[in-house]
Computed example of a mutant assay.
Amino acid sequence: MAESGSWQTLVDGGESGEIVLAVDFDTTGRPEARFSDLVANLQTDFGVWESSPPPGGGARARTGADYIAHWAEPLAAERPKIKAVLGFCAGSVYAAALVERIASWQQERPLLVIFDPEVSAAQTLMWQYHKVVGFMASVISDEDVATARKAGAELHDRTPEIGALKDGLIALIREIGEPAFTRVGLDEARREELFSVFESFLCYLAAAADIDPLDLWHDAVAFSSASPLSGLRAMRAAGVGGERLAVSREIEIDVEHGVMLADKELAAAVSALLNG
């Protein structure tokens, strides 16, 4: 399955032959802990496969259905026994949809486990855009930073549709980043790598907005970090989903969002859940 282009093996399974799927957007240099950190602390006998993005970094996968098909089709062909599907942040949206798809051919419904789940919205994309502008602040002037932030805000105001907003933000980052990265000596290949990661991530976030996960999360076990601007805490504060925002069980972990997947107490709780 690791050779399918849809999943990569984080850990080989043991005698049980069962698999845990993990859905996340993982990339070199990301500051947050990742599922590989969680897996390093798990005490289970299951294999763990992590999602890989569609070819071209998601540029040709325009909808949430495209992403689900990319991940589900090789699973449907091979039919491994799937114990659980894990999702981190926006990956929790895709994880919920994958559980539904897998349940269509597997008699035992996989467990859904989500970590600081979030739904994708225009503001989600804007947050990522501003993070990238902040990253470039060391190589562009304060005036250019202010201009970039204003241009992003104006684009957001006139572009309510999330797909068009995504395309506009990708174009803006290239417009700002090309001269900035050239000035500091980044060659074309490295510049393109950085732009491609940003484009791929925005495609992943924008496509997740096609899927309404709220009812699907009702059967989930959710782990919530201590960060007030992340996960269920942030969604409740913003009034997202109203009474529809509910999970079967919520486990609060007293760590910040960015390091939660590396927390050993969280890993112990996940292990107990999977082994139960």
Rank of each mutant, 00 (worst) to 15 (best):
W105Q: 03
C89S: 15
L98T: 03
A103G: 06
Y94A: 10
I114K: 01
A103V: 04
R101T: 15
L86E: 03
R109Y: 11
Q106I: 06
G91L: 11
I102K: 00
V113M: 14
V85C: 10
V93F: 09
L98E: 14
A84R: 12
W105V: 00
I102N: 02
A90H: 12
A96N: 05
C89D: 05
V113C: 13
A97Y: 05
A97F: 05
E108R: 02
A96I: 12
A84F: 06
Q107H: 13
L86S: 09
E108V: 07
L112Y: 07
F88H: 14
Q106V: 09
S92E: 12
S104H: 01
V113I: 15
I102A: 00
F88E: 14
Q106S: 14
A96C: 06
Y94L: 15
P110E: 13
A90I: 14
S92W: 11
Y94M: 13
A96F: 11
P110T: 08
A96D: 10
E100P: 00
P110S: 05
V93D: 12
V99E: 05
Q107C: 09
F88R: 08
F88Y: 13
A96W: 08
F88I: 06
S92V: 04
L112R: 00
E108Q: 08
Q106E: 13
S92I: 03
A103C: 09
V85I: 15
E100R: 05
A84D: 10
F88K: 07
V93Q: 05
W105H: 05
V85Y: 14
G87S: 11
C89L: 02
Q107A: 14
F88N: 13
V113T: 14
G87K: 01
S92L: 08
V85T: 07
A103T: 10
L86K: 03
L112I: 02
I102Q: 01
V113R: 07
I114W: 06
R101P: 00
V93L: 06
S104F: 03
L112T: 03
R101W: 13
L111M: 13
G91R: 04
Q106D: 11
A96P: 08
G91C: 10
A90S: 14
I102G: 02
V99I: 11
Q106G: 02
I102L: 05
I114R: 02
W105I: 01
E100K: 06
L111W: 10
G91A: 04
Q107N: 12
R109V: 14
I114D: 10
A96K: 07
A103P: 03
C89A: 06
A103R: 06
Q107I: 11
A90M: 13
G87L: 09
S92Q: 07
I114T: 15
L112Q: 00
E108S: 04
A90T: 14
L98C: 03
L111C: 06
V99D: 07
A84C: 05
S92P: 02
A90L: 15
R109Q: 15
L86F: 15
E108C: 01
P110N: 00
F88D: 13
R101S: 13
A95W: 06
R101I: 11
F88V: 09
G91S: 12
L86W: 12
E108T: 09
G91W: 07
C89H: 08
I114E: 13
V93W: 00
L86H: 09
G91H: 01
R109T: 15
I102M: 04
S104G: 02
L111R: 12
G91V: 02
A84M: 11
Y94V: 11
A84K: 08
W105T: 02
V99W: 02
L112K: 03
Q106W: 01
